[in-house]
């Protein structure tokens, strides 16, 4: 299943080595920010939740993980965010993030294959 991740622009702008480096940083960002988001959901901290969603949206947008980016942007711009709803939203975003990381791993594997062929 494709979640709309489009890493092609990265591959166009960067060398494979740089793509790997950026995606590695992205993976670290995703894991950290998703954990922060889940924690903000548990404590019902709406402001922190928005800030984390902003960071996650920025990171996802930078590498082309579009579904994850738009989900985060949709939540951070909502005026009616309710503390009680945060754990559920965080869980959905965590699923999208996991999916993006799976696509990412496939993309990196493709890069490795290209490197071996060349």
């Amino acid at each position: 299943m494709s979640l709309g991740a489009d890493f092609a622009q990265l591959a166009e702008d960067l060398s494979p080595e740089d793509v790997r480096r950026v995606l590695s940083v992205f993976e670290g960002d995703v894991r950290r920010l998703v954990a922060d988001m889940v924690a903000a959901g548990h404590t019902g901290d709406v402001a922190l939740f928005r800030r984390v969603a902003h960071g996650l949206a920025g990171a996802a947008g930078a590498v082309g993980a579009k579904s994850l980016e738009s989900a985060c942007r949709a939540q951070m711009s909502r005026d009616d965010l309710d503390p009680a709803s945060l754990p559920g939203i965080a869980a959905r975003i965590q699923q999208l993030a996991d999916a993006a990381l799976v696509e990412l791993a496939a993309f990196v594997a493709g890069l490795d294959g290209q490197s071996r062929r060349t």
């Binding site: 702008d13 960067l14 740089d18 480096r21 950026v22 940083v25 992205f26 670290g28 960002d29 960071g55 920025g58 990171a59 930078a62 590498v63």
Partner: peptide, 16 residues
Amino acid sequence: EDTPTQAELARIFLTG
């Protein structure tokens, strides 16, 4: 830039 992914991407673009 506070998001490491974006900062790293900008750094690579600029050094390039």
